[in-house]
Write a protein that binds this DNA or RNA. Sequence first.
DNA 1: TTGTATGCGTTATCAT
DNA 2: ATGATAACGCATACAA
Lengths: 295, 295
Amino acid sequence: MGYFPDATARALKTNRSNNLGVLFVDQTQSGLTHEYFSHVLNSFKVEAERLGFDITFISRNIGEFGMNYYEHCKYRKCDGVVIASVDFNDPAVIELVRSEIPTVTIDHVFDNRTAILSDNVQSMHDLVCYLYERGHKKIAFIHGEETAVTKKRLASFYKTCEELGIDVPDNYVKAALFHDPKSSALATRELLELSDRPTCIMYPDDFSFIGGMNEIEKQGLSIPDDISVTGYDGIYLSQVLRPKLTTWRQDTEALGREAAAKLIEAIVSPKTFIPRQVIVPGRLLEGGSVKAIDS
Amino acid sequence: MGYFPDATARALKTNRSNNLGVLFVDQTQSGLTHEYFSHVLNSFKVEAERLGFDITFISRNIGEFGMNYYEHCKYRKCDGVVIASVDFNDPAVIELVRSEIPTVTIDHVFDNRTAILSDNVQSMHDLVCYLYERGHKKIAFIHGEETAVTKKRLASFYKTCEELGIDVPDNYVKAALFHDPKSSALATRELLELSDRPTCIMYPDDFSFIGGMNEIEKQGLSIPDDISVTGYDGIYLSQVLRPKLTTWRQDTEALGREAAAKLIEAIVSPKTFIPRQVIVPGRLLEGGSVKAIDS
DNA sequence: TTGTATGCGTTATCAT
DNA sequence: ATGATAACGCATACAA
């Protein structure tokens, strides 16, 4: 054809924009600076572009009109949206997921919608078993906010401990926030002040662990001689610390790629597409932050 | 008005999309996972959204048609484009910059176009002076690839050394790559093998320094007792290492915000807008990676 | 097969 | 002022 394509005119005509929305917002407006999510997003972007789709960020209150997420997607005629790192209880998010726009969520399952999930059950099982094999029976767990991810990890933590005959006192389980070193520092202090101190602390993620690390150092303790620790995510940072952090590597590349592939499949084959949940395996990354102890 | 706005129809009619293009590509397809740039981009995104603009990623080869950057922008009717972390010698980039589409570049200046620049001259001056004050006179510099940024840093490095009466042997200056621990590791090894070894090594960025750190450890040397080091960027990682890395903090928040503000100003006020270069100051972040030595 | 007219949703223009 | 209408660029449906 002898003309230069114009996406707006084409979208107007066909009702297809070849544009995917990306809803990546966390509380602190730092979605993109979150290493785990920026890796997932990068992978999503690469795969989407390979399949001929552009990417637009979705947010609320764009310009003159105050729009919610769903309206913003309609405004931009997004063919589909990937949702991650948001408050999944937000009514605006739920409205979007329940709408006619295809969505894929990451790390959260909505009824009968497609979700890409990191294996939060297997991960906690493997980590706890790893600790148990090294003689740890007093294991504390600092978890993130009450999300679906946290619920799965907590359940898997308790279940695995039970299977191994490990007793978990209530005060060994502390609530903190994901990606927030401060709250993990606080929880760490409380754990260290216990009369019957744990021999190992599991953190909600590698980034949060930094808060715990600082607290542990401040108390004059050393890792792993005085206390063992594990992280979660396997971000670059975790492998650069000394000692290296023993953690769980989430396959961010696969998470993003799968999300893009499934979303686009839902868009181009709406009739044959079956919503499903894809579980992406990860693997334990052994560092030097867990000491083998005599039991 | 009684209808729901449709961006495609509006853009078709007005030739304004309220959409900004983002061209962020590095060699390794890892634009978003680059901590420095992901922070700049996040800040850009926040400011753009505040001013009512959406963001779309620009890349080549979208879908069926093979488009270059300029064509992709036209295809999406981007009102303007921010360009960073690319090969600024790429003809496709130059074509875009020379086009009628308003652009803002980060860390590179094109003739008579707007650019947002981190202060690469001041930074090297301050870092070298800091080292000099601590007795260092044998300072090696591992620099990134031959970009405008590198040229400025190199010139400032040589100039400051000259002013301070520091002699810089040619083999104290090594070429490596930005954001690439491997090449910095190699350069580090070469420096450590010199008969007249430097007392301090300056790295192209904090991330690359990790490669150097591993090499230094491998040789059984310790930082800062056996050798001092400085980084560049001031990413989170640098402040979590032990010892903390002495580095230069680039104000990513301001860089992104300024880029969005200037780009949007160029779009909404094309008649009164004057292209200019904005220099964003940074600051030295003192860590513990530089030892004071007797001279 | 090749060509031509219609309409997608919006805004701008023009007539009232 | 207010309201009807054409045009933006493309795809599609229909006519030749």
